[in-house]
């Protein structure tokens, strides 16, 4: 049973690896954005400092974000949305697979592949940049390990959240519109628009417990030492609970959306 989903994952993964030229140009773009953002936030942090978030830390935070950009972006797998809006999804019923799991594997495969293609080179180049502009070393080995766990949680969280785009597409029949709604909300609350440590404390106190920041913010903050090991472990547990909860919720929502589609005859 699990084997067929692994097969889908591998297919998508291999498919994504084909676009190497796309990856190189993506890396160049990411490097440029990284620099631009660092120079921007530098202007803010130069005039006033936020407690516990220095320019050096900010630079590392931004670079990690750029390196793992493909994973942070909440986007469902290619062709899924189209198959829903044009009704081809009906043909998928013939396969003896759970559609949620199938789409999950497809999306996860694409995310993992495009992340793996991009992140090493970005991290290496970022690490070669001078201190304050480049990526610094992690605060400690445990922090690094915890960060890796956080990233693994993040890619799953990102995929789980992406599944809500699938659900919304069923409801609105607009792939673009649905993707935009979810990715905008998640972008703001996961630190993609503005790094979360730079937001007002009162706002942070809420956002820190919402599921979105586990997509990318938490592991990077553990890496730079902005969140300590103990706090990190607690937050990872919270994130894991969110992951389980949202995955179950997503499954139920998509199941009911599918049922309606079958009744309507697609």
């Amino acid at each position: 049973m699990g084997k067929s989903y692994l097969g889908i994952f591998r297919m998508e993964f291999k498919g994504e690896l084909q676009y190497r030229a796309k990856a190189i140009s993506g890396i160049a773009t990411q490097l440029f954005w990284g620099l631009l953002q660092i120079y921007l936030y530098m202007a803010f942090l130069n005039t006033e400092s936020v407690d516990g978030f220095s320019i050096t830390q900010m630079a590392s935070y931004i670079w990690l974000g750029q390196a793992f950009f493909a994973m942070r972006y909440i986007l469902m797998g290619k062709n899924i949305g189209q198959s829903i809006t044009n009704g081809n999804v009906c043909y998928k019923f013939v396969r003896p697979l759970n559609l949620y799991n199938q789409w999950y594997s497809e999306t996860l495969g694409q995310k993992v592949a495009s992340t793996l293609l991009r992140f090493p080179l970005i991290l290496i180049i970022a690490a070669l940049l001078p201190v304050g502009l480049g990526l610094s070393a992690p605060v400690s080995i445990p922090a690094l390990l915890l960060c890796i766990v956080g990233i693994l949680l993040g890619v799953c969280m990102s995929t789980t959240l992406s599944m809500f785009i699938v659900w919304l597409t069923f409801k609105t029949l607009s792939e673009k519109g649905s993707a935009t709604i979810i990715s905008t909300i998640s972008g703001l609350l996961s630190g993609m628009v503005i790094p979360l440590p730079m937001m007002p404390q009162a706002v942070q106190n809420v956002i820190n417990y919402l599921p979105f920041r586990f997509v990318s913010d938490l592991p990077f903050r553990i890496y730079i030492g902005n969140v300590g090991i103990t706090d990190g472990l607690i937050f990872l547990a919270i994130g894991f609970a969110w992951l389980v909860l949202l995955t179950i919720l997503g499954k139920l929502l998509i199941k009911s959306a599918l049922k309606k589609t079958v009744i309507q005859g697609g």
């Binding site: 519109g177 649905s178 709604i181 905008t184 972008g187 503005i194 937001m199």
Partner: peptide, 23 residues
């Protein structure tokens, strides 16, 4: 689509607004 696109920008404005709340 038009409305959701405008939503993206509203998200950005919110982000900048919060940034200026802090700084």
């Amino acid at each position: 689509i038009a409305i959701t696109q405008a939503l993206v920008n509203i998200g950005e404005v919110l982000g900048v607004w919060m940034l200026f709340l802090q700084f």
